[in-house]
Design a protein around this nucleic acid. Structure first.
Length: 831
RNA sequence: GCGGGGGUGGCGGAAUGGUAGACGCGCCAGACUUAGGAUCUGGUGGAGUAAUCCGUAGGGGUUCAAGUCCCCUCCUCCGCACCA
């Protein structure tokens, strides 16, 4: 009977489903394990990256179930977002219909792979039963002042027709479409994630080391971007304005020769209003020029610095000197206060700017080697530590002492204030898009911005809409959606037409997995208290500074309001590598994709899973190889053939496990040992290392050993049966279908997915004899078999006594002999 | 520029400081076959008839012993990058 994977896989998928064996329940008497994968966006079909992600997760889920853990393992769909709108325009369909039909198709694909999900727990974010809780959580945030509205220069993507959060601007472009992002002044909803900046930072090392890859921890640390310094104020008497600036180098305050503002700074408008028309016009032109630059052009370190000199001056609070105010393109409105004190002698950017515009350069630190810097002749800024000069009472101090001393002094004099600044910005949550969670607010002419009362949730997103163009939400053309009554005064009001960033949905879906279908709350506290935090999270690295930061923030917020009790949602994180073909990431645009469905049709799900898990360790990139898929298929055929052809004998000898102590023949003792070292090693590779490729290699070795044991005695058959049982059991998390089928063929009545993981027997792993490596001066000169456990001196004598070794050491002075028991003897000789 | 990974056969990849190259792919030879792109057996880092020598990016070092530890250099991938 050939290996008919198609029928076998179908059969077992049905059995698993009918027996509900993967459904898990909250049970505090059992040790839980929450295995989570980043849920997919329903773009149409699964790609190999998904298959890899979920195959890794399924191995762990199946393995841990066998280890007796109560495993929560499920999936869902992150199903709000732009592509549905674009598809709707292109195919003249509705985002809702397009999304749900994609979900249906991808669900079939997932089921066809044999993943052991508890489908009752599935979460689909675009359905009102899910997104109403987005709205509810949003209102909880609002109540606690975490949500607010403000007008600010925000990132705008023209192609997507919407604003973006800072995290969603990658290399100055939109994270989805790459379009260069521009700043635009808009009134938007924000979430105060910066309230949690310090905690988000501290917990990286406190709780996520070593559970998270170092790479991700560093990326988040840099993203949060903490820096310590001081805030100081420049008075501008002519404008009756106090301008704040943040600096990490307050020790260079005597070297300030200009002040620079970001073109978006509020003071710019104020200046224009008091300037003469001609100058005001020139200033507007400059601002317009800079804002026409995309973020890429403006934020490139090599970009040319552009400045505009205003007729205004600020007063240096320390020296009392008048400092000219400039507006410069390299000052970011997003960082610090959007204004800087310019110290060209000690900051390369300021230096470049001053050389270009002929602004004086005053050194206030000299190098420790005694060099005296001269502002007129310096060729670059001196940014290292040194000795203070031209700095009044602080002259002669070393930089490391001058910084705290000067800030201390400044604080006492009321000139500055210690401040910690973060690069992390508040999370811009509004999107000018249709296919998302409606933001639960209304605008009333009388009462202003009013939250929708919780009992009126959900604010339903109309499904029957036609999306005609990018950049204009169809909600704006839906009076039935827009027009409402004010919950406060009952008068006419208008709904917020913006929707939420979809990262809101994905920030708490794992909580929902814990108590699906709850209609009274986003989740039941007792469920979440039991299952959360996630024990193992698996997904791509691309979310390092997006989803993974937002979800961490949510965890902290939900705990602060008493809904949960964990502060970090993901205890361990595995970031799997990309799937590569012909040296490049698989992508539709490159035309190098491999369709999982086709592969499954041709080889079966077990083969694809095996290939993908065997070809590389999970965190490496994985090169797709048709040849290696064939190889994986060949291995399964080999397993199939052996069990099938020997089923009669194997069945006859089932059940009785012969202990090592009763086995006499050397070949059988070796075989028994192989069985148990395999268990030991596979267990270690899967659980401790998550190195599935080596685990599979061990199982291939065991298979080879089974084939190689040419011994027809009943004793040998008992052992072969033990070996086959172990092989099938250990292979089952990787290839669950074929192993179930063969397990059943051997007469087991239980399902293999429920059978406990085998235990290795220490007594079966004891070595009878070992190969001793004989070295002379560190070079291998022979290998000899010896009984295991020989004493050092005995072993030394025995190896020295070998003729070939004695010949090679004859006539030479033996300096010393290193003996590593059961391993090697190294003879160090002279001459 | 800063930070973090990597660099091992023809390829994917293995190796608690102790036999470098497990396992697989490919390749070579053979067996069985009408046939083989099925299956099985054996071989497979390089040089050499051989003993042996050389081999983990390159160079130094520590050690009885280094792919593994330390220092320097090169290459490569990734992240960040005018962050005040």
């Amino acid at each position: 009977m050939p290996y008919n994977f198609a029928d076998i896989e179908k059969k077992w998928q049905a059995r698993w489903e009918n027996s509900h064996c993967f459904e898990s329940h909250t049970d505090t008497s059992k040790e839980k394990f929450f295995c989570l994968e980043m849920f997919p966006y329903p773009s149409g079909a699964l790609h190999m990256g998904h298959i890899r992600n979920y195959s890794i997760g399924d191995v762990l889920a199946r393995f841990l179930r066998k280890k007796g853990k109560n495993v929560l393992y499920t999936i869902g769909f992150d199903s709000f977002g732009m592509p549905a709108e674009n598809a709707a325009i292109k195919f003249k369909t509705k985002p809702h219909d397009w999304t749900l039909s994609n979900i249906a198709y991808m669900t079939e694909q997932l089921k066809r792979m044999g993943y052991s999900y508890d489908w009752r727990r599935e979460a689909i974010t675009c359905l009102p039963e899910y997104y109403r809780w987005n709205q509810w959580i949003f209102l909880q945030m609002y109540k606690r002042g975490i949500v607010y509205q403000k007008e600010a220069p925000v990132n705008w993507c023209e192609t997507c027709g919407t604003v973006l959060a800072n995290e969603q601007v990658v290399d100055g472009g939109c994270w989805r479409c790459g379009t260069p992002v521009h700043k635009k002044n808009l009134k938007q909803w924000f979430i105060r994630i910066t309230d949690y900046a310090q905690e988000l930072l501290d917990d990286i090392e406190k709780d996520l080391n070593p559970g998270w890859p170092r790479r991700v921890r560093i990326m988040q640390t840099n993203w949060i971007g903490r820096s310590e310094g001081a805030r100081l104020t420049f008075k501008i008497p002519e404008l009756d304005y106090e301008l704040d600036a943040f600096t990490t180098r307050f020790d260079t305050i005597y070297g300030v020769t200009f002040i620079a503002l970001a073109p978006e700074h509020e003071l710019v408008r104020k200046m224009q209003s008091v300037m003469n028309d001609d100058d005001a016009k020139k200033l507007s032109e400059f601002v317009k020029l800079v804002s026409s630059q995309s973020s890429i052009e403006r934020s490139d370190a090599g970009a040319e610095k552009l400045g505009f000199k205003t007729p205004f001056y600020g007063i240096n609070p320390v020296t009392g000197k008048k400092i000219p105010i400039w507006i410069a393109n390299y000052i970011l409105i997003d960082y610090g206060t959007g204004a800087i004190m310019g110290v060209p002698a000690h900051d390369q950017r300021d230096f470049d700017f001053c050389r270009k515009y002929d602004i004086p350069i005053i050194p206030v630190i000299n190098p420790k080697d005694g060099t005296i810097l001269d502002g007129a002749t310096m060729t670059h800024a001196f940014e290292e530590d040194g000795i203070a000069c031209n700095s009044g009472q602080f002259d002669g101090m070393k930089t490391e002492d001058a910084i705290p001393a000067m800030i201390d002094w400044g604080e006492r004099e009321g000139i500055c204030k210690r401040e910690v600044n973060f690069k992390l910005r508040d999370w811009l949550i509004s999107r000018q898009r249709y296919w998302g969670t409606p933001i639960p607010f209304v605008y009333c002419d009388k009462c202003g911005v009013v939250p929708v009362p919780e009992e009126q949730l959900p604010v339903i997103l109309p499904e029957d809409v036609e999306v005609k163009e990018v950049g204009r939400s169809p909600l704006l053309d839906r009076p039935d959606f827009l027009n409402t009554t004010c919950p406060h005064c009952g008068g006419p009001a208008r709904r917020e037409a913006d929707t939420m960033d979809t990262f809101f949905c994905s920030s708490w879906y794992f909580d929902r997995y814990c108590s699906p279908g709850d209609t009274n709350a986003p989740f039941e506290k007792s469920d979440v208290d039991y299952w959360m935090p996630v024990d193992q999270y698996i997904g791509g690295i691309e979310h390092a500074c997006l989803h993974l930061i937002y979800a961490r923030f949510f965890a902290k917020f939900l705990t602060d309001i008493g809904l949960t009790k964990y502060r970090e949602p993901f205890t361990r994180l595995l970031t799997q590598g990309m799937v590569i073909k012909d040296g490049a990431k698989m992508s539709k645009s490159l035309g190098n994709t491999v369709d999982p469905t086709e592969m499954v049709k041709k080889y079966g799900a077990d083969t694809i899973r095996l290939f993908i898990l065997f070809a590389a360790p999970p965190n490496n990139d994985l090169e797709w190889s048709d040849r290696n898929v064939e190889g994986a298929h060949r291995f399964l055929n080999r397993v199939w053939r052996y069990v099938e052809e020997n089923a009669e004998n194997l069945k006859k000898y089932g059940g009785k496990v012969i202990p090592m102590s009763e086995i006499k023949a050397g070949n059988l003792r070796d075989f028994k040992r192989k069985i148990h070292t395999t268990i030991e090693n596979v267990t270690h590779d899967v659980y401790d290392e998550k190195q599935f490729n080596t685990a599979i290699a061990r199982l291939m070795e065991l298979t080879n050993a089974i084939y190689s044991l040419n011994d027809d005695t009943p004793e040998a058959w008992e052992l072969k049966r033990e070996a086959v049982d172990v092989l099938l059991n250990c292979l089952s998390p990787f290839c669950p279908h074929i192993t179930e089928e063969l397990w059943e063929m051997l007469g087991h009545s239980d399902m293999l997915c429920l059978a406990p993981w085998p235990e290795s027997d220490d007594s079966a792993m004891v070595q009878d004899s070992v190969i001793i490596v004989a070295q002379i001066n560190g070079k291998v000169r022979g290998k000899f078999e010896r009984p295991a456990g020989m004493a050092k001196d005995e072993l030394e004598r025995s190896i020295m006594g070998e003729q070939s070794i004695a010949d090679k050491t004859a006539g030479k002075e033996i300096v010393k002999v290193i003996v590593v028991p059961d391993k090697l003897v190294n003879i160090v000789v002279k001459g």
